[in-house]
Amino acid sequence: MNKDNQDPKAPSNDNPVKEASGSKQPDNLKTLEDKIKDFQKTTDGKKGRNADDSESNNISDGMRAGAELIVPILVAGFIGYHIDTWLGTKPLFLIIFLLLGMGSGFFNVYKITQGIDNRGKSDKD
């Protein structure tokens, strides 16, 4: 937001100089400044995935989703089963952890579809 406020000022400062001198240099400097700003945006990762959702990203997201859905259920089931055999509370923790695993799996897929997995985190800051 701060950057947006500064942006209109910068050209208005440059324009009188440009009109007065008539040389091309301020114009070039301005485009250079814009380029630097654009570059800094990309290097900070601020651009994120929404700006350039390339096809390879989409395919890789699709490939990720399947495993992200299934594996947490298996992991949670495994944890629940072992807590049960350890404490002797046979089906209790297995059921609790399976439900948590399903929730976790769906949450992962939701995060991928909404772009709020770690890739997009810096967008929200």
């Binding site: 495993a67 947490p72 298996l74 992991v75 949670a76 944890i79 952890f97 976790s104 799996g105 949450f107």
Partner: peptide, 9 residues
């Protein structure tokens, strides 16, 4: 849970 599942996924 999803953190623990990371290496396995």
């Amino acid at each position: 849970i999803s953190f623990l599942a990371r290496p396995i996924t």
